[in-house]
């Protein structure tokens, strides 16, 4: 029986793709972005967070059979159909559970529900092959074009990320590149000129910019961790606009708030 390690399920997700969507956050990630706003989805283990302020305890991490998960997300089918929405699988890194994600996506598409996978791309190409046929759109995170930064800060592999991206685009998939704008990490013009150059080579067409926010910091507190970005304010509008300009030459650019 195929099972998935689900962190949480969020309905009426309005920031994770077109229309009304349900986002399934899978648990477990192979990257360690220090600004991560979903820290509860990094570890594969089940975790209970007790939020300060409400003392509300929320448990993240639940093994669900494919059947269970499918039944859960299919409840909102009327909303998906009316709005052109569907199901988004995010994480964590969803493609660390490629068989389950592929099977879920296949079943959803067989009943006409559109599927979107939000990945950071740092997985073997075979993992993409498990899902690619059943996924309508990929949200594809690119954090930097600096190989050393990828390795040392994010713990990822730049070559793998850009390589997979190129192959995905080449395979004709609908891909939106998602770039988080992180103060102190990738906010300079030079950073983005470099990313721009690399992206050009992949043939990608769409770029979404995601300005940093610290809305995840209470989760760190609830996990008993210290958030390194606790005192980092969101980037200024003007800086974001400047970066946007760089990509506007050749890409369809959106700022996602």
């Amino acid at each position: 029986m195929t099972v998935l390690n689900v962190s949480s399920i969020q309905r009426f997700s309005t920031g994770d793709g077109p229309g009304i969507r349900t986002t399934v956050f899978l648990k477990g990630c192979n990257l360690r972005c220090p600004w991560c706003h979903n820290p509860e989805s990094i570890s594969k283990k089940t975790e209970t967070l007790i939020y300060p302020g409400t003392h509300r305890a929320v448990t993240y991490g639940k093994t669900m059979s494919l059947e269970e998960l499918f039944d859960d997300v299919i409840e909102d089918i009327d909303f998906y159909r009316e709005s052109g929405g569907g199901v988004t699988v995010s994480g964590g890194e969803p493609l660390l559970q490629p068989v389950g994600v592929g099977e879920l996506a296949r079943r959803l598409r067989s009943v006409g529900i559109s599927t979107l996978v939000d990945t950071a791309g740092c997985v073997p190409w075979e993992n993409f092959l498990c899902v690619a046929d059943h996924v309508d759109t990929f949200y594809y995170d690119v954090k930097t074009a600096d190989g050393a930064l990828y390795e040392n800060v994010v713990r990822g592999d730049k070559a793998l990320v850009f390589g997979n991206l190129g192959r995905l685009v080449e395979a004709g998939k609908d891909v939106a590149v998602r770039i988080p704008l992180i103060p102190g990490f990738n906010m300079s013009g030079a950073d983005h000129e470099k990313i721009y150059g690399e992206l050009k080579k992949t043939g990608a067409r769409r770029v979404d910019l995601l300005p940093f926010h610290r809305l995840g910091s209470s989760k760190y507190e609830a996990m008993g961790l210290t958030y390194g970005y606790k005192d980092t304010p969101p980037p200024e509008e003007a800086k974001i606009e400047k970066i946007k300009k760089i990509y506007e030459d050749g890409f369809i650019v959106r700022i996602e708030k």
Binding site: F12, G15, N38, P52, R214, L215, S218, E221, P233, K257
Partner: peptide
Amino acid sequence: PDRYQSLVVRVSGFSAIYVTLSRDVQED
């Protein structure tokens, strides 16, 4: 905060119960 235990703010990536957020985040 006691009166707003269920007040959800919807933001990209996830939603949060507003009163569980730390003060500077609420200010953001």
